[in-house]
């Protein structure tokens, strides 16, 4: 649409000559996105990127050691003979849990200043008078932040892999944990950008983003837990199998909006149902229902929400100042 508009103008415009000193080429969204290049140059320069990575790995390493000590102690004391696979699983789950907390807080930190920071540097107006489209700016900010998150996750693989020494964990879990972590980081980054386009200052954008991130990671499980307890009381009264089924789907659906619950349930399903896809579950009354591993709906929900916030951010930026 826009391309066509440009074409017509070139033909009818009184004085636009396309063959000027420079040939203009539409930038490839990712390969030649000036924002990604600029952000990465800035982010990786000097000691800051190195320091963040070091602190991140140090924290992760410390926690991993603590989890190892705790897991091996408890495993020995219970069985008399250590359940090595249990140690491996606890270790792996612990590392993923810490990564999830760190990623949930690092990803928004990179993006909540993305647009408001440009305003504060007074470069936002400069960018808006260039030919850089809003979506390239948002995409550039998002991808450069995600690349750093990927770096953090990749750097943590050796720590996660310690679990492989003990067994009880397979590559499938490693890959699934990566998918869940990336989807979480992607959504939180995009929410960060969205608030950054709305807020005048980075501080308020950060506060809003962290509020939402905290709600999703911590607030939601508390609410879900309370609701489940309440429903459990109600459930004791006995329901028809239809009501039980609906209840299961609703609770399952809500759980799939929380990364931690999704990760735990996905692992539970993998261990007990030996699948990462669909499986059938028997209700207390003997009825069979088909369920799917939570990581699938979780990823779909998170990607869809990411798309929504991405579009909202672009819309917001496209608006002219009044």
């Amino acid at each position: 649409m826009e391309e066509q508009a440009t074409q017509t103008t070139i033909e009818t415009a009184p004085e636009h000559k396309p063959d000027r000193k420079f040939r203009y080429m539409p930038p490839q969204l990712v390969t030649d996105n000036p924002v990604i290049l600029k952000e990465l140059r800035g982010r990786m320069r000097g000691a800051r990127a190195f320091n963040v990575l070091t602190i991140y790995l140090f924290l992760l390493g410390t926690f991993t050691s603590l989890i190892y000590v705790a897991a091996s102690e408890s495993a020995v004391s219970i069985g008399g003979q250590a359940n090595v696979g249990e140690i491996g699983r606890t270790l792996f789950g612990g590392v993923v849990a810490i990564e999830m907390v760190l990623v949930s807080f690092i990803a928004p930190a990179f993006t909540s200043g993305a647009i408001s920071g440009e305003r504060e540097h007074q470069t936002y107006d400069l960018l808006r008078t260039t030919l850089l489209p809003s979506h390239s700016l948002v995409l550039g900010k998002l991808l450069s932040s995600m690349l750093y998150v990927v770096l953090l996750l990749t750097a943590a693989i050796p720590l996660q892999s310690i679990a492989f020494f003990f067994g009880g964990v397979a590559e499938t879990e490693l890959i699934l944990s990566f998918v869940i972590l990336l989807a979480t980081a992607l959504l939180f980054s995009t929410i960060g950008i969205y608030f950054s386009t709305r807020a005048r200052r980075t501080l308020s954008a950060s506060v809003l983003t962290y509020s939402v991130a905290t709600f999703i990671t911590f607030g939601l499980p508390i609410i879900i837990g309370s609701v489940m307890i309440a429903l459990g009381l109600w459930y004791n009264g006995g329901q028809s199998s239809g009501a039980q089924k609906v209840l299961l789907y609703v609770i399952g659906g809500v759980l799939c909006t929380n990364p931690a619950a999704t990760a735990l349930l996905t692992q539970y399903v993998l261990l007990n149902q030996r699948t990462i896809g669909a499986f059938s579950y028997t209700l207390t009354n003997g009825q069979q229902v088909t369920l799917i591993s939570p990581w699938i709906p979780f990823t779909i929900i998170y990607l869809a929400l990411t798309a929504v916030f991405f579009v909202l951010s672009i819309r917001r930026m496209g608006k002219l100042e009044e």
């Binding site: 600029k38 140059r41 800035g42 320069r45 540097h121 007074q122 470069t123 107006d125 400069l126 008078t129």
Partner: peptide
């Protein structure tokens, strides 16, 4: 157009 606003739009890490 080439536009220069009445402030310096400058990145500090460039």
């Amino acid at each position: 157009i080439g536009y220069m606003p009445d402030f310096f739009g400058v990145y500090d890490d460039m």
